[in-house]
Simulated scan of single mutants.
Amino acid sequence: MSEDAVGSQWYDNEAGPLVRPYAMTGGRTQPGPTGVRFDLIALVTLDTTASGADDSLLGPEHRHLIDLCRVETQSVAELAADTDLPVGVVRVLLGDLLERGRVTVSRPVPPAQLPDERILHEVIAGLRAL
């Protein structure tokens, strides 16, 4: 096999160097011992109390996730799409950030727990009557 043929499997002129997902996660497939489930709709927010944290030990993918969360709260699915990484990789990286205290994770309110629209209309009507 020629040297060009060997090198072409690791480098794509248009896409740049190819980095396998396991290289980004250190071979891990689970987000760590945090016990938090990173559902696709889980909301990830940058923890502003850790703003002075040292990001120099983080990988470029970790820093990219922090930058995306710095702008606004993002779902796991949005972060995966914006970073162009597989969801499994994003979950592992978010687990690292959660363990370092750089992000917080919350769940959106399920529709079944939201107040009924009829009740809200009655409250509005009651306030207008005052």
Rank of each mutant, 00 (worst) to 15 (best):
D116C: 06
G88M: 05
L127P: 03
L18Q: 08
V87C: 07
G35Q: 14
E78C: 04
L93G: 02
E61S: 12
P86V: 07
P33I: 10
Q74G: 00
H121F: 08
L68V: 01
P17A: 13
V71T: 14
D4M: 09
L97G: 03
G126V: 03
L65E: 00
V109R: 08
P115Q: 10
A53T: 01
L40V: 11
L127A: 08
D54M: 06
G26F: 06
E72C: 08
R20K: 13
Y22Q: 06
D67I: 01
T73D: 10
L65A: 09
T83D: 11
R28M: 15
G59C: 14
G88I: 07
G26M: 09
V87S: 13
D67F: 02
Y22H: 10
R37Y: 01
G52V: 04
D116A: 07
D67C: 02
E14Y: 04
D12Q: 05
G35W: 14
E61Y: 07
L18A: 09
A5Y: 02
A112D: 13
R63L: 06
E72I: 03
T25H: 05
L46P: 03
A15S: 10
L85H: 15
D54K: 09
I119N: 08
V89W: 04
L58N: 02
T48L: 08
E14H: 09
V109I: 15
L18G: 02
A81K: 05
R28A: 15
V92T: 13
P111Q: 13
R107Q: 14
H62C: 15
L127V: 06
A50T: 09
I41N: 10
R20P: 00
L120F: 05
T49A: 14
V123T: 08
T25M: 01
R20E: 09
T73G: 04
E122V: 12
L130I: 13
E61T: 02
I66L: 15
P33Y: 08
P31Q: 00
L120I: 13
L127E: 14
M1C: 03
L120E: 15
T45A: 14
L98R: 03
R20D: 06
A15E: 12
R63I: 05
P60T: 07
V36N: 06
S106H: 12
L46V: 02
E3G: 01
R128Y: 11
L46W: 05
Q74A: 09
I119C: 05
R107E: 15
A5Q: 08
A125D: 14
T104P: 03
E61H: 12
P86T: 14
P21M: 03
A125I: 01
D39L: 09
Q74E: 10
S75Q: 06
R100K: 14
A42N: 09
V71L: 10
V76Q: 04
G59R: 11
E14N: 13
S75I: 03
M1D: 02
V71N: 04
E117N: 12
S75P: 00
D82C: 06
